[in-house]
Write a protein that binds this DNA or RNA. Structure first.
Lengths: 190, 190
DNA sequence: GAGTAAACTTACTTACAGGTAAGTTAGATG
DNA sequence: CATCTAACTTACCTGTAAGTAAGTTTACTC
């Protein structure tokens, strides 16, 4: 067997897609294996249990997100543009395909997930919340953004709204995220 | 067998509780039957398929919500108080028990749900959105509330945020809803 | 070119899900 | 009192899920 087959990555990618559309309990190893043209046990070879797969998936998502945040900061991207990238990302991931973010897909059933996964999900939300909070604080300090109250509370509000809007978008087959983001833009940018 | 046993209601109640904690795919007829001390087939007697149960559940939830809205309007409750009842409700349903609302619990996996359930979920969101939109419009007209933009967009934003905050609360075992609601209160009430 | 190890497949087990058909019981009704 | 029916229970079926053990192939190494 080829040493450089990227089966493992393909499995994670497919799993992530399925997760974002059907939730963690909504897909099986079979779904993945038939899609990739491999056998069920091949997945178990790379990820002994489904929780191993779930953990790898969310861990990868954290890394991707961390990298993007670092990139935005590295290029000293203006705060408004950072915020807009955040909004646009959610808008695009929703439009037409109506997918949730991996955290949003796992959170509803997090009780029945393993401790490591739960901790990883919290870490992801920490990551986004910290970035968003700092961006908001900086934006207000510099004068580009206007809002009331604590930046951390505002970050929580915005992040929650986008999260909820993704769900509503999926349910209603309509880009609620875009509408909610526009509402925030109208309130923040002045 | 007693004609007045309320088994059917108990099943719906238990199912609703399980749904709000584990999602629709996260519980089985067995969970309900063991909890209620009845047999699996007893549930099938009242609800032939799980989707029948799910539909009954969300339908009941719609009726409850509609009744509450009608009551608030009937007593000509002030808009601020209406809004506060909405926030408080979510805060209490989250605190300590970390439960989602039935719609929020079903939405992530709505693709795999039957058409009637999907339509019922949309109807529920319509109901809340319409009430909230009208309350916001009235509040701004009367001077008790302040916000930018279209009341419908603002309703979508608030409703999304509460929805998302419930998920985050569950994940983080912390009442994010209260914090998000306070942020909105600070912005709206002036 | 024999051996080793990664990357699988084959063939299976176990558990549990939703669902059904046929029988049982208890209470209301004629 | 016999009967009818709602409200179940018993006993099953089928599908599918996660997971495993043992064998196979491929490529690299000594």
């Amino acid at each position: 067997m080829p040493r450089l087959s990227n089966t493992k990555e393909k499995i994670v990618d497919r799993a992530r897609d399925l997760l974002q559309h059907r939730g963690f309990g909504g897909f099986s190893y079979r779904d993945i294996s038939t899609d990739l043209g491999i056998k069920n046990a091949a997945i178990h070879y790379h990820f002994p249990t489904k929780e191993d797969l779930g953990l790898a998936l969310i861990e990868q998502y954290i890394d991707d997100t961390r990298a993007e945040i670092a990139a935005a900061r590295g290029r000293a991207m203006p705060v408004r543009q950072q915020l807009d990238t955040y909004f646009k990302r959610a808008e695009c991931e929703v439009e037409g395909v109506w997918s949730l973010c991996p955290m949003g897909a796992m959170a509803p059933s997090c009780e029945s997930l393993s401790e490591p996964i739960q901790r990883a999900l919290v870490r992801f939300s920490d990551l986004v919340l910290e970035w968003l909070g700092e961006a908001l604080e900086q934006g207000r300090r510099e004068g580009g953004l206007a809002f009331e109250g604590d930046p951390k509370s505002k970050a929580l509000q915005i992040s929650s709204a986008i999260q909820g809007a993704r769900q509503l978008s999926k349910l209603r087959q309509h880009n609620v995220v875009a509408q909610v983001a526009d509402q925030f833009r109208g309130e923040l940018y002045r």
